[in-house]
């Protein structure tokens, strides 16, 4: 139990080769991309481009931190992310005239957090199917957010926060620092706390976990609450940096986050994975996308590669643990 996060029970010693493959596939992939990128384009390995990659990672990365918890707790996926991003962005900008920019931003996060609480109660305590529940709450929340601002594009009017977020602190973009802080917090919560142990235990074997008096419902609900809150936070950051928000602003973020987590090798079957893996997956996906952009491949067509990448990553994951009895 205590070593649940270092030694997944499904991998036994005789499959050391497979375990090794699962461990090194991601770093090798990232390294290969770095080499391929610098060969294909001379702009790739410049400080400016790599900073851009980091900034692009940050907004999705904050959501990835939450989604990792959902995956490990065997909650399948949170599909309400776009709505939470949208409500965060819309409220943070729409309420600026009334509340001032910082309270409006906090209100945006709080609104997403409340919606996440509903998600958590319904999925954790009422034990509803996570996919359909987050689909429904996402639809409702997005509708409410649109009704609140009249379904139009909202513009921000206080450039103060924007210049702070897009500025740099000690040479690092502030938004990247925020992302790194959230990622570090998530990593410590998952690997160093009792709650983190509960998350692994809940995902690995719900029945045994319940018998061990772990608050199963709380753990599962908390994972969804965290994801919604982080998505709202991410939406606020997105809205403040862009200074505009429309209801569709969060579209696709749920799939981006799921792609990153899946490519990182965090298992959809629950109980396995960690934060560095998920963020490694995110780095790989962002680098790949960056290389394609630099080589003139349209964003819309990049899905041809991304779709294949997701399928390949999960197929590898399934292959590596198929004989562990978790099909």
């Amino acid at each position: 139990m205590t070593s649940a996060h270092t030694l997944p029970p499904r991998v036994t010693d005789e499959k050391r080769g497979r375990k090794l493959l699962g461990g090194i596939a991601l770093p090798v992939g990232i390294l290969a991309l770095l080499i391929a990128g610098s060969v294909l384009s001379e702009q790739f390995l410049t400080a400016r481009n790599l900073t851009n990659v980091l900034i692009n990672m940050s907004i999705v990365g904050i959501i990835v931190v939450g989604m990792t918890f959902v995956f490990i707790v065997r909650g399948l996926a949170d599909l309400s992310v776009p709505a939470m991003v949208a409500i965060g962005a819309l409220l943070a900008l729409g309420l600026q005239p009334a509340l001032g920019s910082l309270p409006a931003a906090m209100f945006g996060v709080a609104a997403a957090s409340c919606a996440g609480l509903i998600n958590g109660l319904l999925i954790g305590y009422a034990r509803l199917n996570p996919v359909i529940t987050t689909l429904a709450t996402g639809t409702i929340v997005l509708g409410v957010a649109q009704a609140a601002v009249g379904g139009v594009i909202v513009y921000g009017d206080s450039p103060g926060l924007q210049s702070f977020l897009t500025g740099r602190l000690l040479g690092v973009p502030v938004i990247v620092l925020i992302f790194l802080a959230v990622a570090l917090g998530g990593h410590l919560l998952l690997s160093r706390t009792t709650f983190g142990r509960w998350v692994y235990a809940t995902g690995a074997n719900p029945d045994a976990t319940k018998a061990s008096a772990v608050p199963l419902r709380f753990t599962k609900g908390a994972a969804f609450w965290m994801t919604a809150t982080l998505s709202g936070f991410s939406g606020v950051l997105l809205g403040l940096t862009l200074q505009t928000a429309r209801p569709g602003v969060g579209t696709g973020y749920e799939f981006d986050a799921i792609t990153a987590v899946v490519v990182g090798g965090v298992s959809l079957l629950g109980g396995f994975g960690n934060m560095p893996r998920a963020l490694g997956g995110l780095l790989l996906v962002t680098l790949l996308s960056n290389i394609m952009v630099l080589n003139g491949i349209a964003t819309e067509s990049q899905g041809l590669v991304m779709g294949a990448l997701i399928a390949a990553a999960v197929a590898l994951d399934v292959y590596l643990r198929r004989r562990g009895g978790a099909s």
Binding site: L76, A77, V131, F255, I258, T259, V262, L268, E300, S301, Q302, G303, L304, M306, G307, A308, I310, A311, V314
Partner: peptide, 13 residues
């Protein structure tokens, strides 16, 4: 869920 997510992204692209 993940398989059809992959094919969704692939086919849309």
């Amino acid at each position: 869920l993940v398989a059809t997510l992959a094919s969704m992204i692939f086919l849309r692209a």
